[in-house]
Structure formats: structure tokens, C-alpha cells
């Protein structure tokens, strides 16, 4: 990560304060690899963050411009920022599962509905780990966490035929992908495509939390064991009905199929101003 860190990150923020064994650093690195692959410079991208492990660990690491939103609302802030910024400026948001799929889901869906030109990296560690390990909305059902000592009772967004990416697709997202933090070039390529999309993109990264989900949910702090469990999660052996299961790769690529929100708003404003608008 050294040369990437030197080129793109603020020295004061490296190394991060993440727990030993945390997968977030791998996600962070893949974002920078994709940024490099896309030829994006530090002036070309504004980096926003949510609240939680992902928000706190990635806020203000970017050498360019940074902002951190209130919990779950960074998608709404991005709507206004997108409207104000020139089209060529990219907006990237790094957020956690609680931020995106819990407290911020309504704003996230409306951001997808509008096809706002932002790239959301939803880094998912299966719960609220920065507050000490409570279950979230992707925590597999039945798992023990600090707020589900007898196992979670509610279904999550990744089971019983539900997939949060399907919901985002229905909402209007134009690029969606999912990877684990262990994946390499394929995951980087997905982020590159997400950044290339003029509209709303989300890449869902599932990554291990050793300190809470590993220690309590999987009953192990052994990194090898934890990584194997996550690999199983993605493997074809674990089909629906035989345990938690997710697929990896690009799930929806409709880049260019719908107008981007701010570009459409700007051109509509011009039409109205010049009296060229036609009522639908």
C-alpha cells in the first residue's frame, strides 16, 4: 500500500487505527487501486464518509477534499453536493452496513431512484462493530452478537431470497457489484466500473471483523478460521437453504441507461430558463 498511500492518502492518517485482522484496510486499498487504474487525481474526486468503523477509519484519509456526514444521511448530502459540483468531479462515499442498509436506507434508495452520480462503497462487517458488536441488517439470522445473546431473531437483507442489491436495482441503481475483501483484481475492476458510471453505483464489500463478529458470532479470533468462514459464505457449496450465502461479482451493469440526476436537473433548468421546456 506504500506507494498508493504516498500518492493518495494523508500521512497523518496512515496507518489507521483499525483492529488487528480487520478487513477494512483491504477494501480501502482496492479503492485506491481502482482510482489509480481510472487515472483519477486527488483534485478529481471528493470523498465522503458515513458513521461507524468504515466512516471513522476512512474519513479525511484522501489527499483531496473530504467530508463526513451524519449517520445515514451522507447520501442526501451527496444529492446537494452533486447538484452543485461540475459534472467531471467524482463523488465517492465509503460507508458501513448500518449506515447504508439501516439508518440511511431510505436516503440510499432515493439516491438510487434519482440516479445521482455517486459511487457508494458499502463496507459490510455484519453489524455495528464500532459500538461493540451489535447485530445489523446483514448479520445472518441466528447469530450471536452482543445485542442478540440468544441469536438474532429478525431476518436480514441477505437471506430467504432477499438481496439488498436487488432492492437497489429495483430502486434504480445503474451499477451494482458485490465482493469479499479477500478478492483481488476482479473487485478492483468492479470499483473502476462503478467510478466510471455517470449515475448511481454501489459496490458491496463483505469483510471480516475479528474483534466482534469473529470473536462472538464465529466464536474465534483465529484469522485463518474467520477468513475460511467468509470464503464459504461466497462458495457455491452454501446454496440458499444450507446456510448463509452470497454471490460475488457485478450483479447489475446498466451504465448510461438512465440520465444522471444533476445533469438532467441542470439541462431541465436551462430549458425552463430559455422557455424551451415542454410539459410531459
Amino acid at each position: 500500500m506504500d506507494y498508493l498511500a504516498e500518492r493518495y492518502l494523508r500521512p497523518r492518517k496512515i496507518p489507521s487505527t483499525a483492529c488487528s485482522g480487520c478487513g477494512l484496510g483491504q477494501v480501502h486499498k482496492k479503492i485506491l487501486l481502482a482510482v489509480e487504474q481510472s487515472g483519477i487525481g486527488t483534485d478529481d474526486l471528493v470523498w465522503g464518509t458515513g458513521i461507524g468503523c468504515t466512516g471513522r477509519q476512512t474519513f479525511n484519509t484522501w489527499k483531496g477534499d473530504n467530508f463526513a456526514g451524519t449517520h445515514g444521511r451522507v447520501y442526501a448530502m451527496a444529492v446537494g453536493l452533486r447538484a452543485a459540483l461540475p459534472e467531471e468531479k467524482k463523488i465517492l462515499l465509503t460507508v458501513g452496513d448500518g449506515d447504508a442498509f439501516g439508518i440511511g436506507l431510505s436516503h440510499l434508495l432515493h439516491c438510487a431512484r434519482r440516479n445521482v452520480g455517486v459511487t457508494v462503497i458499502a463496507a459490510d462487517n455484519f453489524g455495528y462493530q464500532s459500538t461493540g458488536g451489535q447485530y445489523g441488517y446483514t448479520t445472518p439470522q441466528g447469530f450471536v452478537t452482543d445485542s442478540s445473546p440468544y441469536g438474532t431473531r429478525e431476518p436480514g437483507w441477505l437471506q430467504d431470497g432477499a438481496d439488498i442489491l436487488d432492492i437497489l436495482k429495483s430502486a434504480g441503481a445503474t451499477f451494482l457489484a458485490r465482493h469479499s475483501s479477500f478478492e483481488g483484481q476482479k473487485a478492483v475492476d468492479s470499483i473502476e466500473k462503478a467510478l466510471d458510471n455517470k449515475g448511481f453505483s454501489l459496490v458491496h464489500f463483505i469483510y471480516p471483523c475479528v474483534t466482534h463478529f469473529g470473536a462472538v458470532g464465529l466464536n474465534s479470533r483465529d484469522n485463518g478460521k474467520i477468513v475460511r468462514w467468509f470464503e464459504e459464505l461466497f462458495s457455491a457449496k452454501n446454496r440458499p437453504g444450507r446456510g448463509p450465502h452470497v454471490t460475488s461479482g457485478i450483479t447489475h451493469d446498466a451504465r448510461g441507461s438512465r440520465p444522471e440526476f444533476a445533469a438532467a436537473l441542470r439541462s431541465r433548468t436551462r430549458e425552463i430558463r430559455e422557455g424551451r421546456h415542454v410539459q410531459a
Partner: peptide, 23 residues
């Protein structure tokens, strides 16, 4: 020459204003 954005709720409305102001 300005923009009108109807928000999904008031929380979003003021956050959208913040985003615009930051821009």
C-alpha cells in the same frame, strides 16, 4: 438559474441544502 429539489423527508431536505452549500 437555481435548482429545486424535493426531498424524501425534512432530514434529507436540510442535508441536501448542506451538500449544495458545501459545493
Amino acid at each position: 438559474g437555481g435548482m429545486y429539489i424535493q426531498a424524501e423527508d425534512e432530514t434529507a431536505a436540510l442535508h441536501i441544502c448542506i451538500g449544495g452549500a458545501l459545493g
